[in-house]
């Protein structure tokens, strides 16, 4: 058994994150959307780019749930994606990358 080591990026302080919404985190040339689902006390991170029209926009999207599945809706055309699996929930083939998130001592880390 080999264990993959996760590289944790210190993204921001908890108080900098937007409650029940997203912020965009810069990681080199990449952009990661970080969501603080305060209502469920959960954190999620995904790619910031919506695969539908390749727009850097998911961090500005509205989050919510369908049945129990937490999701984000792209502000451009309201395509929705699962925050857990990254799967598109609006019937399209495209999916987004998701990343693990942890909070330690008030700092939010994204696993890359």
């Amino acid at each position: 058994m080999t264990q993959e080591t996760i590289n944790w990026l210190a993204a921001c302080r908890v108080e900098d994150a937007v409650e029940n919404g997203g912020v965009c985190v810069k990681y080199g040339d990449e952009q990661i959307a970080l969501f603080y689902f305060t209502r469920r006390n959960e954190w999620y991170a995904t790619q910031n780019e919506c695969p539908h029209r390749k727009q850097m926009a998911l961090s500005r999207g509205m989050i919510g749930s369908t049945t129990e599945e937490p999701k984000v809706a792209c502000p451009f055309h309201k395509k929705t994606f699962s925050l857990v699996t990254g799967e598109c929930l609006s019937g399209d083939e495209c999916a987004i990358k998701t990343y693990p998130v942890k909070v330690e001592n008030g700092t939010v880390y994204i696993g890359l």
């Binding site: 209502r39 509205m62 919510g64 749930s65």
Partner: peptide, 18 residues
């Protein structure tokens, strides 16, 4: 949030929020 707590269920979505 008050509306969701008092009148709704689940976590809301891009339809009911706006």
């Amino acid at each position: 949030e008050e509306v969701l707590d008092n009148l709704g269920q689940g976590d809301g979505c891009e339809v009911c929020k706006p």
